[in-house]
């Protein structure tokens, strides 16, 4: 546990030292703030005291930002050779992976925490469904964790950050969009499976304030498989390096 925290701490600090974290936070707040309050079908247009608009925007911004955060986590260590340094220290590959996962996850938590003023503002304007808001945030966290896990896997199989970014987006787009579209284009049990595989199905039900064990199981399995894949490719290091 202590070792995991040491790795998380270093990773978080390097996010902030490299300005990555600030850029990420500013862009995220900028995008989500602009579309939530100023442009498009913003809160005033919808004329309801709810954060649905914000969740819809965050759903897309996080999808693009998370691969940008995770792309360097392992790919860069592989490229600069520091991976060799790290794995020859008395830490297991699981501790390295969980440590890096947590660092990215904490960065997302910080970004989301900074959107609380939106919540407070809307709650002051009208009657808001507090349950739905908290469930929406929880849904965003679960979704982020899933994409971090996919991004970490993408980062573990290459030493090129751009390739890692693209692989993460490529895998992510299936869960984010393609399964959903494909399910509406097909029928029967197959459509059911595709619908279940689509992140938006689970996210939307959570953002409405409903939580189901099916949704939890879905997110946790994506996280689990992503991390397992990362572990496998990390322990097979002798092939590539």
């Amino acid at each position: 546990m202590k070792k995991i925290w040491i790795i998380t701490k270093r990773e978080l600090r390097s996010f902030f030292d490299s300005l990555m974290a600030y850029i990420m936070i500013v862009l995220f707040l900028g995008f989500s703030g602009f579309f939530t309050w100023i442009s498009g079908s913003d809160i005033f247009l919808v004329n309801q005291a709810s954060l649905q608009t914000f969740f819809g925007i965050a759903y897309w911004t996080l999808f693009f930002f998370i691969p940008a955060i995770t792309m360097g986590l392992l790919a860069d260590e592989r490229k600069s050779g520091t991976l060799e340094l790290l794995v020859t220290k008395p830490v297991s590959s699981w501790q390295i992976i969980i440590g890096k996962f947590l660092a990215a996850f904490l960065l997302i938590c910080i970004s989301l925490a900074l959107t609380f003023p939106y919540y407070i503002t809307v709650a002051n304007i009208g009657k808001i469904d507090h349950g739905a808001v908290w469930m929406g945030y929880l849904g965003l966290l679960f979704m982020s964790a899933s994409y971090i896990s996919i991004g970490l896997f993408a980062s573990s199989i290459t030493s090129n950050q751009i390739v890692s970014f693209l692989i993460a987006l490529f895998i992510g787009i299936f869960f984010h969009l393609i399964f959903g579209i494909a399910s509406s284009g097909s029928a029967g049990w197959f459509a059911g499976i595709l619908n279940y595989l689509s992140i938006s199905t689970h996210f939307e039900s959570m953002a409405r304030g409903v939580i189901d064990s099916k949704d939890l199981f879905y997110f946790l399995s994506i996280i689990f498989f992503g991390l397992i894949g990362t572990e496998l490719s990390l322990s097979k290091r002798n092939l590539s390096n």
Binding site: R10, S14, S18, S80, G81, T82, L83, E84, L85
Partner: peptide, 11 residues
Amino acid sequence: LPETNPLYKEM
């Protein structure tokens, strides 16, 4: 000390 002496350059 590995041959390539990898280090976290930004630290």
